[in-house]
Design a protein around this nucleic acid. Structure first.
Lengths: 156, 156
DNA sequence: TTTCTAGTTCACCAAAAAAAGAACCAAAAT
DNA sequence: ATTTTGGTTCTTTTTTTGGTGAACTAGAAA
């Protein structure tokens, strides 16, 4: 039984929770992400999550399973211990995940292209603007991996 | 009274709506964004929005006001006509808006920094990873405007 | 002055989302 | 063999959300 959260930790978990919530994530999931980030051990068992976040087992079960499918978290086990130790997937491949997530933003561009397809030339100014934004998003998308490379070089 | 939407237009509006909805935006707002993008005139009056999206005046009123505060849309008026013609704010300063929105993504970094502040060195590997991600986000944030400049140069 | 137009505000409601709780299950421990 | 542990699943309840519709308002028109 690990010791309980400090007020600072609790507050930070809630803030991180709200942040994700506002971006369309389910409330409890955001809080679990916060918890796993804030905990000294950087991991927690099922029951620790239930206890520290004061939520039901079913809610935790559903949230954890969903987040595993989404590759947000994973778990490890220890010999002679049936518990699952959940942790944030932040190891070697955070880069791919993060750039992938950044590029999610450019998905709107697929719709922009569809819109441009559908529009006549009644309002060329608008079309020109939209085309420009679309082109930038295209450019942006291909530059994100480049940016990552630059960053890695800079670090070494 | 402008003519009504084609099936293609309606479907695209809904798809754009769902896209935004999944990212935490209220359903109607996403649909209004879709509508204003898809309409040939690239603008619509209050009543046209009510009519074309088949929603109540109050819902439209709230959505429009919110979106104006958020700078997603604006309206113009015409002499001798009290109606407001709402349109997407995509004119001259789409660049600032878009880069601003892209950089929204890096807001999570504020929390990462707070987390790092709070964490001891019990789990240095985790801290190292988180620091690295945080540094990348920092780098990314400052590179977005650079990317925009590059894009503009490339166009000219 | 009264009526109309273009919206706003607010009390209310339905549906969806989120969580709770009980029953359940499989593997391990006693 | 039966109890405990570590969860899962299913149904029910609670909470939140998104939207409706009626009443209202300010300015323009008749």
């Amino acid at each position: 039984m690990s010791n309980s959260l400090t007020t600072k930790q609790e507050e930070l978990i809630e803030k991180i929770g709200v942040f994700h919530e506002q971006r369309g994530m389910q409330p409890l999931m955001g809080r679990i992400l916060g918890l796993l980030m804030v905990l000294e051990d950087a991991e927690a068992t099922f029951d620790e999550i239930v206890e520290k976040l004061q939520v039901s087992k079913s809610a935790v079960s559903n949230a954890l399973n969903f987040m595993q499918v989404k590759n947000f978290i994973a778990y490890r086990t220890k010999i002679g211990d049936r518990k699952r130790y959940f942790y944030l997937r932040m190891g070697e491949n955070w880069e791919t995940d993060l750039t992938h997530e950044i590029m999610e933003l450019t998905k709107i561009n697929d719709f922009f292209k569809e819109v441009l397809e559908l529009r006549s030339n009644k309002h060329p100014e608008f079309n020109k603007n939209l085309t420009c934004i679309s082109e930038f998003l295209e450019f942006f998308k291909e530059q994100v991996p480049v940016l990552l490379e630059k960053f890695k070089n800079k670090k070494n």
